[in-house]
Amino acid sequence: MENPKIKIENLNLHFGNQHILKDVNLEIPKNKITVILGPSGCGKTTLLRTLNRLSELNTEAKIKGTIRIDGSDILNTNEDVTVIRKKMGLLAQRPYPLPMSIYNNVAYGLKISGRQKKKYLDKRIEHYLRQVNLWDEVKDRLKDPASALSIGQQQRLCLARGLAVDPQIILADEPTSALDPISSQMIEEKFVELSSNYTLVLVTHILRQARHIADHVVFMYLGEIVEQGSAKDFFENPQQERTKAYLQGQFY
């Protein structure tokens, strides 16, 4: 692959004496949607959380290997971890809005980066809320607490909030699993749109969703990468027996 956005080499992760990620080698293409598939418990979430260095919050975690973003290692570096995290937006399985107004949720990332001017903030916040199709629904109640939104709206708000930090990469861990079909579709369409400017890594259990939006697919099983390739190759012509079995729905 030429110029992968993320290049993972020999990544091993242990929680205590459990070997969770086993010798993971992976290249994630720039400005494409990479979907990670695999049965429950195979380490997808752990891999995603290792990318933005949340895994290391676990006292038990031991992490070895390298993860390069645009060629520079983010695991073994002296660079401030907050700077690294700002390069990636994380969309979790369920939305966690911040305990403040809708406006301030989106403004948060801008404010901690030192942008304070109200005019500037107003403009950017409208921009990001429009980007996730939320503006029309909330423009009259920006000062309301974020908790007043529906779950689907909260998830879009969280996406807007992540975009406001101006990341290059968006990590999403089953972002539609708590959402209704319409909201899910909205998020899927957004992802396709965003993939022209952002590198997306999406974990999902929904094969239909994967077929629908993936450019590149990674299949994991028990902490190992079993197979990876372009979406077309992966779905039409899987190489490994375990991949075939998974795609036929033989295990989840």
């Binding site: 949340l54 994380l90 901690i112």
Partner: peptide, 24 residues
């Protein structure tokens, strides 16, 4: 999850303390 969301937005620990935990 809230704590981790705040971290993944690139907050420092004191920003989490006084902008988020305190409010919540």
């Amino acid at each position: 999850g809230l704590f981790e969301s705040a971290l993944s937005l690139g907050s420092t620990k004191s920003e989490i303390a006084y902008r988020i935990m305190f409010k919540q």
